[in-house]
Write a protein that binds this DNA or RNA. Structure first.
Length: 893
RNA sequence: AGGCGCGUAGCUCAGUGGGAGAGCGCUACACUGACACUGUAGAGGUCGGCGGUUCGACCCCGCCCGUGCCUACCA
């Protein structure tokens, strides 16, 4: 909207008074998709930049952790894209074996049926059906976040291609002897009916009891007391262990005890694993239901007795207790032992109890035949890659944790007794018993040619397929152009809590199968926690829903907040107030653009600006500040310091561009000087354009919306070149000069406020500056000072009489007076001067203390000493001036 | 048990071996034509505690207290 006879305003589109993100965000995302703006290009001669998304569970909904994770990725991808790289951000989801199976099983239960009723084939079909209908909603939520993924390349870990990669990897590792099958103790979830890897067990401190149980000696006389937290497992005991050097038990190793309730005679063995200080120093050994006991049994060649079934219910080996749930059995056993007088005592004990990470059931260690990856050889290569900095972990502090885990890594149990997942490509020949592992389904047994092959029913750990993600998504095992272009990927951005689950395993698999690391840099960001620092979880009810936050504050505000909070090495306790604050920031940008557009409507974009030094001061200044900000943004994003980029931009846009430059420019833009007006418009447009570009990776929507209406033919800001640092724009002289003027303006404003003068009162100002050069500069910009401090007139003097009855202020060595003859409130002014004096005196004392210290003079670097000396001089002069003003004020009173 | 991290303004958080910062909140004033999702000015902190290193410590070191997380085979 322009009024026809308004000569100060150029033609141009008018923006709405407030930014309406609800209308803008969906519009732009749709258009970006339509125009295929996110598609990877595979041109030669440009740098490549690729990221694979940490695939969210197909069952997942977007939580704040995803919002953080994907915002950071999108910032880097958009930044590199604007820098001209061939960028590829591969999106996708993870089939989340146990989690997804649980979802569909719950559905079936509601229908009054179960997976066992309908059978494996039908069940898997149901899962696929569920995935089609309601799975992967998180993908749309990522789009809502503005993620610039190449959606045409979206992958799913159960895709045909990825399945082929899984089979290939499994087969090769098997043939290399790095995958084996064996009977070992594993973590069993009786609810999910599957084995779990060690990592998938969550240990939680739990209040339990330590039961002291008497095991009578086989000789018939006396007993040995063992201590256990799980008395029900005694039914499977096959020995009692004591420390071989424990004198209390010397000579006992020849003896045996009779297992109470069971009557089995079991030996006493000596094993150094036993902790003498704990309990009674005698440990019952249950090889089939305890990880450590299993190891002890192997050392002493002890038998193992399984006493529970897959449901955690006691089995036939439990004798009279068969059919009882493990916890009911515990009660009964305790009662029975007490009745027999064999329970010595029961004491409370807090100890760690393993829970299933998916369903939170107490895990039961169980002896079972499973498939394992022998990880040590793979881990060694990953360790080397990090040591040699072929992979850099950021923040570096995580490296220690990484090494620690990798050095102590244990074989990885990869088989799961569920139906949803990659079925293990292994067959047993029913005829001859041959085990066949093959990436292509065999028709006949290669050994006996028998056609009756029985396929392994287990599926693989979901993380097994995730470990292949950086290359399987690019087409491996086929040698695709994508692999050549984008592997190794540039950077992996993920949360530290899956460093072991996922990151380490990708390193191992990538190095082993590609012969090259899967990514150059790993950036581990913090976990988003609630105000108490607790992990957010549905069960705790402390979740913040990013979708609601986007509804309320806009996507850009949420994204900017995420970036601003992403300081390295620290947890994020998200604060809604901060999001609101950044919504205001988005609106501020909008209004700055709105103001600009009222003036730059007929500017020519890209027109060359006059030589920097020939421009008026404020233009030189803002261009210099812009350049400095550009440098800060590059440095910050290059080092994964997202918060520094956000803060630098926030400060620049609001505190410098809006607060000072736009205000200063109003004189040009509303004034009568056509040349000044033209220059002002051109610089304004230049600064606005570059600022929007710098901001775009963080806040894509509002920047794109503004970009579109800037003068000239505009395509998307997404593909505009990102601003580069130009040394010629760095103008320290202009920055120093503007700091001087700002100080004077601030001094005048302070007087106005402190003296209670009305904001619209037009003040007379006298500035005394002894330095002729600066005095001249101040005088030259007197009108700007007037405009921004609402002064009627600024008189600059190099020397001379201080005005009588004036309020005063000091900026460095420059004195500012506002004569208020007759009007001055002497008490107020006196109070202000006293306060100023107090401050200066306090600082002066500090400096004097330093300079009076010979050791300081002797040891401190010369430049520091010189600086302190300068400070002393400056503050002494200030103090003298303040005291002079106080004296004069007294005379007045 | 070990490891890692944190404790800075009322709240949420940056930061650095040489004069303590931001946002929000608070106080006062102001609807001047980009913006009240605003502007101007201001108040507010012995940088968890105690020692040590240093000319100098919020920053480095030790201990303590509080707090959070990760790994662990004391049942």
């Amino acid at each position: 909207m322009t009024t026809p006879n308004d000569s100060t305003s150029a033609t141009g589109p008018e923006l709405a008074k407030a930014y309406d993100f609800k209308a803008v965000e969906p519009k732009w995302y749709r258009r970006w998709l339509e125009e295929k703006k996110f598609s990877a290009t595979m041109e030669q001669g440009r740098p490549n930049f690729s990221i694979v998304i940490p695939p969210p569970n197909v069952t997942g909904v977007l939580h704040v952790g995803h919002a953080l994770n994907n915002t950071l990725q999108d910032i880097l991808v958009r930044y590199r894209r604007m820098q001209g790289a061939n960028t590829l951000w591969v999106p996708g989801t993870d089939h989340a074996g146990i989690a997804t199976q649980n979802v569909v099983e719950r559905q079936l239960a509601q229908e009054g049926t179960s997976r066992h009723d309908i059978g494996r084939r039908k069940f898997v079909e149901r899962v696929w059906q569920w995935r089609e209908e309601s799975g992967g909603q998180i993908i749309n939520q990522l789009k809502r976040l503005g993620c610039s993924c190449d959606w045409d390349r979206e992958r799913f870990t159960m895709d045909e291609g990825l399945s082929r990669a899984v089979k290939t990897v499994f087969t090769r590792l098997y043939r290399e002897g790095l995958i084996y099958q064996g009977d070992y103790i594993i973590n069993w979830c009786p609810r999910c009916h599957t084995a779990l890897a060690d990592l998938e067990v969550e240990h939680e401190p739990t209040d339990g009891k330590l039961y002291h149980i008497r095991y009578p000696f086989a000789s018939g006389e006396g007993y040995l007391v063992v201590a256990t937290t799980r008395p029900e497992t005694m039914l499977g005991d096959t020995a009692v262990a004591v420390h071989p050097a424990d004198e209390r038990f010397s000579g006992l190793s020849e003896k045996a005890v009779i297992l109470p309730l069971v009557g089995r005679k079991i030996p006493i063995v000596g094993d150094t694993h036993v902790e003498r200080e704990f309990g009674t120093g005698a440990l019952k050994v249950t090889p089939a239901h305890d990880l450590n006991d299993f190891e002890i049994a192997r050392r002493h060649d002890l038998p193992a007795v399984k006493i529970m079934d897959d449901n955690g219910v006691m089995n036939q080996s439990a004798g009279d207790y068969a059919g009882l749930d493990r916890f009911a059995c515990r009660k009964k056993i305790v009662a029975d032992l007490e009745a027999l007088g064999l329970m010595d005592k029961i004491e409370p004990l807090q100890h760690g109890v393993g829970h299933c990470y998916r369903c939170h059931t107490v895990v039961e260690p169980t002896l079972s035949k499973q498939w394992f990856v022998s990880v040590k050889p793979l881990a060694d290569k990953a360790i080397a890659a990090v040591k040699e900095e072929r992979i850099r972990i950021h923040p570096k502090s995580w490296e220690n944790t990484f090494f620690d885990w990798m050095y102590n890594i244990r074989d990885w149990c990869i088989s799961r007794q569920i139906w949803w997942g990659h079925q293990i490509p292994a067959w047993t020949c029913v005829t001859c018993g041959e085990l066949v592992v093959a990436d292509i389904d065999p028709d006949v047994c290669p050994k006996c040619r028998g056609a009756n092959l029985h396929r392994e029913t287990d599926v693989l750990d979901t993380w097994f397929s995730s470990a292949l993600w950086p290359f399987s998504t690019l087409g491996w095992p086929d040698q695709t152009p994508e692999l050549g272009h984008f592997y190794p990927t540039s950077v992996l951005i993920t949360s530290f809590d899956i460093l072991f689950f996922w990151v380490a395993r990708m390193m191992m698999m990538g190095i082993h199968f590609m012969g090259e690391v899967p990514f150059r840099d790993v950036y581990l960001h913090a976990l988003v926690r609630d105000a108490q620092g607790q992990k957010m979880s549905k069960s705790k009810g402390n979740v913040m829903d990013p979708l609601e936050l986007m509804d309320q504050y806009g996507t850009d505000a949420l994204r900017f907040t995420m970036a601003a909070f992403a300081a390295q090495g620290r947890d994020i306790k998200l604060s809604e107030e901060r999001i609101e604050g950044y919504r205001h920031f988005i609106n501020k940008i909008w209004n700055a653009a709105r103001f600009a557009l009222m003036h730059i409507g007929d500017c020519t974009p890209g027109a060359a600006l006059p030589a920097p030094r020939s421009l008026p001061l404020h233009h030189r200044w803002i261009l210099s500040r812009l350049n400095r900000t550009t440098a800060e943004v590059h440095a910050a994003l290059g080092g994964f310091n997202f918060n520094e980029a956000a803060n630098a931009l926030y400060q620049f846009v609001w505190r410098e561009f809006c607060d000072w430059y736009l205000e200063w420019s109003k004189a040009d833009l509303y004034g009568d000087d056509p040349a000044a007006k033209a220059t002002g418009r051109q610089v304004l447009l230049t600064v606005l354009e570059n600022t929007l570009k710098l901001l775009h990776p963080l806040i894509p929507f509002v920047t794109e919306e503004i970009w579109e209406v800037l003068p000239g033919a505009r395509t998307s800001i997404m593909t505009e070149p990102f601003p580069e640092v130009e040394d010629a724009r760095q103008d320290d002289e202009a920055e120093t000069a503007v700091t001087l003027l700002m100080g004077i303006i601030g001094g005048i404003r302070n007087i106005r406020s402190e003296m209670g003068l009305h904001p619209s009162a037009e003040l007379e100002v006298v500035v005394i500056c002894h330095d002729p050069q600066r005095a001249e500069r101040i005088a030259a910009y007197a009108s700007a000072i007037c405009a921004m401090s609402r002064a009627r007139r600024v008189t600059v003097r190099e020397t001379g009489e201080r005005p009588k009855g004036a309020a005063s202020n000091i900026f460095t060595d420059i004195e500012i007076f506002v004569p208020l003859e007759g009007l001055i409130d002497i008490d107020k002014e006196m109070a202000k001067l006293d306060k100023d004096k107090e401050k200066v005196v306090a600082q002066l004392d500090k400096v004097r203390g330093k300079l009076g210290n010979e050791k300081f003079l002797a040891n401190a670097p010369a430049d520091i000493v010189a600086k302190e000396q300068e400070k002393l001089d400056a503050m002494s002069a200030q103090l003298a001036k303040i005291e002079e003003n106080i004296k004069r004020l007294r005379e007045l009173a």
